[in-house]
Design a protein around this nucleic acid. Structure first.
Lengths: 190, 190, 190, 190
DNA sequence: ACAGGCGGGACAGCCCGTTATT
DNA sequence: AATAACGGGCTGTCCCGCCTGT
C-alpha cells in the first residue's frame, strides 16, 4: 500500500492539465509523460488505445470533479443564484491565476474532435449532460417547470463556456464577469 | 476582376472550413492545400509566416462575415429579439446541415492557442470585440444603459458560442434551441 | 501428466502458428501471448532469452513434426513417389485451408534472420539437414547412389519450399500442384 | 542535368538491398534512408504510401532486373540447360560473395506479408508470373508442350527459390549446387 | 510458477517550412 | 511567379526485456 498517487492517476492528471492549456491536438504525449514523470511504454499498459483512451479518462475525471464541486456549491449556498455566482467567480479566478491559460478541458476538446472520434465525443456528451442535469434539478427545486429548468440549465452551461472562451482570448477577466452579471440579473428578475 | 476566385482567397476559404471542422492544431496544411487545389510553395508567397498568418487571415474573414450578417439582421429585423432569434436559428441550421461538424471557427481556435501565439490571439480578441460592440450599440439603441448593454452583449456572445459547443458534442440541435429559448425569454421579460 | 497442455507448450504452438503466418519480425510477442493466453512474465521463465529462444523451440518442434510425418509417409507408402505425392498434396491442402496464410515456418524465418541470429540460423540449418537426410536415405534405399540421393533430396526440399512461396503469393494452389507434377514426372522418368 | 542517380532511384536501390538482407518487417526505414543518404521527408514525396509503396517499386525493379538477366541468358546461351546452369551459378556466387546474406528479395517479402498487404502481394504475384512465363516460352521453344513447359517452369522457379533458402540458412553454397545439379540431370534425361 | 506494471528505445508516418529549378 | 523536391524534427504507437510482488 503506497501513499503516492499511482502512475495511472498521475497520467490522467497530467493529461487533464495539458488539455486545459493546449486542447487535444495541440498537446503532445511527450509533454504529458514528462509532467507525469512516466516513461512512454507505461501509457499503453494502462490505456491500450493510447491518447484517445487517456483523454476519455481525463474527461471523465474532469466531469466528476466539476459535478462534485457544483453539488457542494448547490447544497451549501443560500440560494441557487449564490451558488452560480460562486461558480463563475471561481472559474474566473482560476483562469486569472494561470495567466488565462487553464480553461475548461471539456470545451477545449469539444472543438477539435472530428466525428470519428466516437469515444471522446460520447464521453463529452455524457459530461455536459450530467452538468446540465444537475443544474436542472436544482432549478426545479427552486420552482421552475421541468422544461424551463432544462432550458435555463443549458443556457447557464453555455454562458459559462462561452464566457471562458472570450476571457481566455482577451487575456482579461472582464468577459466572465460581464456575462455572469448579465446572467444573474436576468435570472433574478422578478 | 477575374472570373475564378484567386488562389489567395481559395486558401483562406479552405483554411476557414478546416478550422471550423478540426480546429487549428488538428488541421494539417496538406488538407488545406488539397482543398484549395494549390501547391505547397504558393502558400508562402501569399502568407510568408505560413500557417499562423493564414489563420489570422481566416479569422479576419470569419469576423467580417459574421459582423456583416449580424448587421444585416439587426437592420432588417423588426426588433432586436427577432434578429437574435434568426441569428441563433441560422447557426443551428448550419451546424445541422454539416452533420454537426462545422462550428464557429473563432471558438475552435480560441481554445487551442497558447499564450505565445500572439498574432492569432490578437486577431481573435479583435473579432470577439467587434461582435460584442455591434450587439452593444444595438442594445443601447433599444434603450439599455451602456453598462447593461455591454453585459448583455457579452452574455449573448457567450451563450451563442457555449450553445454551439454543446450542440456539436451532442450531435443534436437541442442545446442551441434550448439556450436560445431561455435567453430570449429572459431578455424579453418585462 | 496433466490434462491441459502446459503453458510452455501453448507458447510454442502459438509462436509456431504466428511464424507461419507472419514470419519472425512481423510477429509481435503480444499476439503470441494473447493466443497462448499467457501473461508476459511467464515467457521469460521458460525461455530466458525471450523471443529468439522461443523461436528456436518452435523451429525444433516444427522440424520434429515434419520429420515424423515424413517418416510415417515413407514407411507406409507403396513407393517413394507415392509418399512424396502425398506430402506435397497435404501441404497444398493445408495452405488452401488457411486461406494461403499458413506456410512453412522454416522458410518464413530463414528469410528474415540476419547473420548474427546465430542460434536461430543453427536451428534452421539442423532442421533442413534432418529432412534432407531422411529423404536421402529413402532414396538410397530405392537404389540411388549416395551422391545422387543427396542431390535429389536437396532438390525435393527446394521444390517444396519454393512452390509454397509461389502458392502463397498467388493465393491459388496451382504452383504447388504444377511443381509437384513436374517433379514426380522427372523423378519417375526411366 | 545531373549524372548521379536521382533520390528516388537511390531509395529503391537501398530498399531492394535491405529487403534482400532482412526481409520486409526486419528492415527499418532508417536503415534504408541512411543507405540512400536521404532525409525522412523526401520518401513521402516520392512514395506517398510510405514503406509499402517503396517495397512495390523495389519488387518491380527486382522483377524487371531478373527478367532481363534471364532473357539475356536465354538468348545468348547455346541451350536452355546452359542458360539455367549459368543462372543458378550466378545466384550461388552472389549469395556467397555477400556472406550468404543477400538472397532473393521476392521470396524474402513473400513470406512475411499478410493477406491485407494487397498491393505488395499483387506485385509479387506479377513478378513470379513474369518469370515463369518467360521460362515457359523458352521451354516451349525447346519442344515441350505448353502444359509440360508450364509445369517445368514452375518447378525451376521453385527449385531456385527453395535452394536459395537452404543455402542462406546453411551458410554454405552446397544446397544451391546440389539442387541445380539434380535439376539439370533430370531435365536433360532422355 | 505466475502475474502484470515498468522502462525506454525504435518504428512508420506526418508535420511545417525552405530551397532550387523552371 | 509557380512548382516540386528537400529537410529533418516530432508524433503516436508498439516493441521486447525486465523486475517486483504474489
Amino acid at each position: 500500500m503506497q501513499p503516492d498517487t499511482s502512475t495511472r492517476d498521475r497520467l490522467i492528471d497530467a493529461m487533464l492539465d495539458g488539455l486545459r492549456r493546449r486542447g487535444y491536438h495541440g498537446l503532445g504525449l511527450a509533454e504529458v509523460l514528462a509532467a507525469a514523470n512516466a516513461p512512454k511504454g507505461v501509457l499503453y499498459h494502462h490505456f491500450k488505445d493510447g491518447k484517445s483512451e487517456l483523454a476519455v479518462a481525463a474527461i471523465e475525471k474532469a466531469s466528476a470533479d466539476m459535478l462534485q464541486r457544483l453539488d457542494t456549491l448547490l447544497t451549501r449556498s443560500a440560494s441557487f443564484s449564490d451558488a452560480l455566482r460562486t461558480w463563475f467567480e471561481a472559474a474566473q479566478k482560476q483562469l486569472h491565476a494561470s495567466g488565462f491559460e487553464r480553461g475548461c478541458p471539456l470545451a477545449a476538446i469539444a472543438l477539435q474532435t472530428s466525428a470519428d472520434d466516437v469515444e471522446i465525443r460520447a464521453a463529452l456528451a455524457r459530461a455536459f449532460e450530467a452538468i446540465r442535469s444537475r443544474l436542472q434539478s436544482a432549478l426545479e427545486a427552486a420552482g421552475l417547470s421541468p422544461a424551463q429548468a432544462r432550458r435555463n440549465a443549458t443556457l447557464i452551461v453555455a454562458a459559462y463556456e462561452g464566457a471562458l472562451i472570450q476571457t481566455r482570448v482577451a487575456g482579461r477577466g472582464d468577459a466572465m464577469a460581464e456575462a455572469g452579471a448579465a446572467l444573474f440579473a436576468l435570472l433574478e428578475a422578478p
